[in-house]
């Protein structure tokens, strides 16, 4: 089974695996030409690197369809003054941490459970994983209907057992969390599979030795399973945080940022400002998102991987 590779993992090993190089060099042309980098590099540089670098300049401008005017940091000042933009900024963190935390906890429990000896394991794994592959738009439409406060199936089912269901997507204080709930529903299968792959990699001898020592199930979990699943946890945390911070399509399909702007996140603010023709402000939002992602992911992956090495 392949082991999990988190983004920071390769960077800390200073440039990935470096195979031994034959000593004869210079005389003959290498059979591994560096121009193989060029075709891919063209796509990457033109459509990813150039726009990313350019975004730093454009974020400092008032930019419309017609002209570009340099205005310094005004866009960023606006970003942290207008309530709806600030809401989007704060919601991004709430959404990312709620979804990521839930996926870690549920994925761990499900992964451990589905690695134990139970009937229909294959069926259960396949069922939990399938939503990962379904289009986000399809899932968004589906749950918009299921969560309908008036006669939607979820609230009907809750009413049948005597619970009054909330107004999932139309309650301003709940809309963002409802979308996060659907995000977890869709994404927990991937976390579970990563944990299952981690469980497979744990040698059975540890559990056998623990059995001889008379360890309880909880002690097994606490002192063997949990520490040895660390690489899987690192992968799940980083993956779901990166995805959560950038998340757009599910929110856009389910609430469009509403009601009002209570479920806006940075990515939906970026789209709204772009639609409204404020390209400079939209790009400033992109730079803010860039900084947020970089400020969380790079230190976190460094810290997680470093702690792993100590053990």
């Amino acid at each position: 089974m392949t082991t999990a590779t988190a983004p920071g993992r390769t960077s800390t090993s200073s440039g990935g695996p470096t195979p031994p190089q034959p000593a004869r060099r210079g005389r003959m042309k290498s059979p591994y030409p560096t121009w193989f980098f060029i075709p891919a590099g063209v796509f990457y540089v033109v459509l990813f690197l150039v726009p990313t670098v350019a975004s730093f300049y454009f974020s400092l401008t008032r930019w419309t369809l017609f002209d570009v005017e340099f205005i310094g940091f005004d866009n960023f000042v606006r970003f942290f003054q207008e309530p709806q933009l600030v809401t989007g900024f704060v919601n991004t963190f709430i959404y990312a941490f709620v979804t990521s935390g839930s996926k870690v906890v549920l994925g761990l429990l499900l992964g451990v459970f589905l690695s134990s000896q139970i009937v229909a394991r294959g069926f259960l794994r396949a069922t939990i994983f399938f939503p990962v592959l379904v289009s986000t738009i399809g899932v968004g439409i589906l749950f918009e209907v299921l969560m309908d406060p008036f006669g939607g199936p979820i609230n009907e089912a809750l009413a049948a057992i005597g619970i009054e269901g909330p107004a999932w997507l139309t309650d301003p204080s709940l809309a963002l969390l409802s979308v996060a709930l659907v995000d977890v529903w869709k994404g927990v299968g991937l976390a579970t599979l990563i944990y299952i792959a981690g469980m497979v990699a744990i040698p059975q001898e540890y559990f056998e030795a623990a059995k001889v020592d008379g360890a309880s199930a909880w002690k097994n979990f606490r002192h063997i399973t949990l520490p040895l699943l660390r690489p899987a946890t690192v992968t799940v945390v980083l993956l779901s945080l990166i995805g959560g911070l950038r998340s757009f399509d599910l929110i856009w399909a389910m609430t469009g940022g509403g009601p009002g702007f209570t479920s806006d996140v940075l990515a939906s603010v970026i789209y709204k400002q772009y639609q409204a023709g404020f390209f400079g402000l939209s790009t400033a939002g992109n730079v803010v998102l860039f900084v947020v992602v970089a400020a969380i992911i790079f230190p976190l992956s460094w810290w997680l991987n470093r702690k792993g090495d100590d053990q």
Partner: peptide
């Protein structure tokens, strides 16, 4: 890791 800068 980095989110693409869409408008640029």
């Amino acid at each position: 890791i980095i989110p693409p800068a869409v408008v640029p």
